[in-house]
Write a protein that binds this DNA or RNA. Structure first.
Lengths: 202, 202
DNA sequence: GGTGAAACAATCAAGCGTGCATGCTTGAAA
DNA sequence: TTTCAAGCATGCACGCTTGATTGTTTCACC
């Protein structure tokens, strides 16, 4: 088992912790909330169940940390994807597509499992709500900037929110089947309507 | 698996079966997929666990039937809500709002639990997919009729689908918090855009 | 009214996930 | 080198859920 270079004490511990969190997110996306037992997560992380229990005494501790972890990952994803879009007439199209991809990926699937599980778990809900709100604010802000939209105009704020809500709905549809083709068609149509809306008042 | 769908001979039996299915849907919406044990469902239905087991030998049998049940309920809901909308200039607004309500209600919450659980359960997915597809087709068809839209025009079909996907996304946002106010604002804005789109080519 | 099958109830065994308690290993400081 | 705490591994007990078994009641039909 002891393979590769043994890291210094603290770094190795941090690495184990990180592997556990990454494995928790992967498991959520692949085997769901109920299927993500600590044994399964630990095995995927390549550590023993006892090691997992050392870092996260209870299962709740593990997934509480996983929520924060996946939140950071999603914000990071958005920050990385949105600002690099080329300016020009098709910018709206690119932005809308990028958001669509974000809500079709592994991170969203994992977050969705937490989101739905939190609907019937008070403890979890208390953890999920503030962090999801942060993702929402961040996504909204980044989208406004990427689109170059002016929220002081009436309806613009709602149009941006609708874009994010639409992406969520499309992401949901993408859970059970690969909905990529339909998503691109819908988003393409949506992008034209959105850029028309934004063009009326710049 | 090939079971002859045995018709209950007695009214009492049929009533018990119906209560179990209704209770299963309620439990899904309130305590989620993992919390909906057969004991919980049976207790809510006011029958013993043995009675539940008589009607549905396994838990899978129970929720397989519950999927079909909630599907029928959702289609019924749509059929009842959409065609009764008053015609006129605000019809688009009414239709969009009605769809939004549909995806904010108990039936959607229950279906969402099944949907997410099915993402990591092959058996469940096989049951959910065709029935959800039926709900999707039905919702699309009814929406087109209620809007009086002509799908032969380019973009109209995508606009209707976007309406449904947007409603799904808003319904998801409505899971953990009461999102009614924001939903109405977003849908109002979308309704104006949608009616503008539909008005360009009638 | 008796009979048999369906409907309902109660109990039991097995599997699984969690949490705890107990050891072993590592590595840095004394 | 010795020491000691953090990191890690293993085994066990408890609670919960499921599915099967057996017993009891209800009801249609002869």
């Amino acid at each position: 088992m002891g393979e590769a270079v043994r890291e210094p004490r603290q770094d190795r511990s941090r690495a184990t912790r990180g592997r556990l969190l990454a494995a928790a997110v992967d498991c959520l996306a692949e085997v769901g909330w109920t299927g993500s037992t600590v044994s399964v997560v630990a095995e995927r992380a390549g550590v023993s169940r006892g090691a997992a229990q050392h870092h996260f005494p209870t299962r709740e501790d593990l997934f509480t940390a996983a929520i924060a972890y996946v939140t950071d990952e999603r914000v990071e994803f958005l920050r990385a994807a949105l600002p690099t879009l080329p300016p020009g007439p098709d910018r709206t199209r690119f932005v809308v597509d990028a958001i669509g991809e974000m809500y079709a990926g592994k991170l969203f699937k994992a977050a969705l499992q937490l989101w739905v599980a939190a609907a019937s778990d008070e403890q979890l809900r208390a953890q999920v709500l503030p962090l999801e709100a942060r993702v929402g604010r961040e996504a909204h802000q980044l989208t406004v900037e990427a689109l170059g939209a002016d929220e002081s105009h009436p309806g613009v704020r709602e149009a941006v929110q609708a874009t994010l809500d639409l992406a969520r709905g499309l992401g949901l549809a993408n859970l059970l089947t690969d909905d990529t083709k339909r998503r691109h068609r819908v988003l393409a149509e949506w992008a034209t309507a959105l850029s028309a809306k934004l063009a009326t008042l710049p």
